[in-house]
């Protein structure tokens, strides 16, 4: 169901799902982001939604929503032009009557990820003064504790939690390495090279099983080197003890879609990659305007959503609160699919 027509003419940039306390009830809400406004929509039932809160930004536009898993009535946003220059926490006053925003960090921020236990990790600065910060978020949205993680000697582009291991964090770097930190001690545990075919890969999800680390990666740009066409996502396995790795599965487009999968992205701005992974499903927006969904266990493309009403899809997210797929168009229309 379309939940918003955007009369301002500014582009819709992101969507996310969040739990929010509204009049004493914890509701599963939708957060939408346009360039200068972030809105919270509460469910009214029967697929009707009502805009409940809006946070306005006047100087710097919104680049992406940074959801904080486990957090209720709190969401973060990254603001900036080409690069992230600010991360802000968005919340409400204690009486629920007005919106609040708190500046969490500013600077030349490369990547940010919300983690379990109300934490946020970000990488900022350039190569020689790169800083990796882990923040615990207080009830009022501010930073309660700040801890530095040991930076690798190369730029960190993306982060991913290791499922089931709250103290482990992965990062992908510009030099095709996966790094792993111990969040409790801040130690950089290992740097693992994953081969040159993974240039500027985005690290989406990871889990550890039988002493091995399984990592789902995606490629910010298509590469026509594979005989089956360019893989959009890839599952690799790494032995963290030896740093040896190998590919397990490639997730390619079905026949007939090949050659049209170059993402809305560039090597310099890989966070604009429009792909998302949750549990064993991955979704991505293709430049054709179609959304493709893969079953990561079965290894095949499970669904294709063609553009609707002549409007291409421009972003896609899994709802972290259930198994819904949130698909957005530039004009502000958000569609929710039950998968």
């Amino acid at each position: 169901q379309p939940i918003e027509q955007n009369p301002s003419g500014s582009c819709s940039v992101d969507v996310s799902a969040v739990w929010w306390d509204i009049a004493g009830f914890k509701e599963q809400c939708i957060i939408t982001a346009c360039e200068y406004v972030v809105s919270l929509w509460k469910p009214l039932g029967a697929w009707q939604w009502e805009k409940t809160y809006s946070w306005h930004f006047t100087e710097v536009p919104v680049l992406q929503i940074v959801p904080v898993p486990d957090a209720c009535s709190l969401v973060c946003v990254a603001l900036g032009n080409l690069e992230i220059s600010e991360i802000r926490a968005l919340l409400c006053s204690s009486d629920g009557k007005s919106e609040k925003q708190v500046l969490l960090s500013s600077g030349n921020i490369k990547a940010a990820l919300g983690l379990s236990k109300r934490r946020l990790v970000s990488s900022s600065g350039t190569l020689c003064d790169q800083q990796i910060d882990l923040m615990a978020l207080a009830e009022d949205g501010g930073s309660k504790e700040k801890q530095s993680l040991m930076p690798p000697e190369e730029t960190v582009l993306t982060f991913a939690e290791v499922q089931g291991m709250q103290e482990a964090l992965l990062g992908s770097t510009i030099m095709n390495n996966i790094v792993i930190w111990n969040l409790k001690t801040g130690q950089l545990l290992k740097k693992m090279h994953i081969g040159d075919s993974f240039h500027a890969a985005v690290c989406h999800r990871a889990y550890s099983e039988m002493g091995l680390l399984f990592v789902v990666l995606s490629h910010p740009c298509a590469q026509e080197t594979e005989p089956l066409g360019s893989p959009v996502f890839q599952l690799i396995v790494i032995n963290p003890k030896t740093a040896l790795s190998m590919g397990v599965l490639l997730y390619c487009l079905p026949q007939g879609q090949a050659g049209r999968q170059v993402f809305v992205s560039s090597l310099l701005n890989i966070r604009f990659l429009e792909g998302d992974v949750k549990d064993h499903f991955a979704a991505a927006v293709l430049t054709s305007g179609t959304i493709a969904v893969w079953d990561l266990l079965l290894g095949h493309c499970a669904a294709l959503l063609p553009p609707i009403s002549d409007q291409n899809w421009s972003f896609v997210k899994w709802s972290g609160t259930d198994s819904h797929l949130l698909a957005g168009q530039k004009d502000g229309n958000i569609f929710i699919y039950r998968y």
């Binding site: 103290e167 111990n182 039988m210 032995n239 003890k241 190998m246």
Partner: peptide
């Protein structure tokens, strides 16, 4: 065979790497 290609595996890799890495 695949596991052998990746070298010796440890179920406690996280704890072991944490004790080996510089503080």
């Amino acid at each position: 065979r695949r596991k052998r290609n990746l070298g010796p595996i440890s179920l406690n890799w996280f704890e072991e790497l944490s004790s080996e890495a510089p503080p």
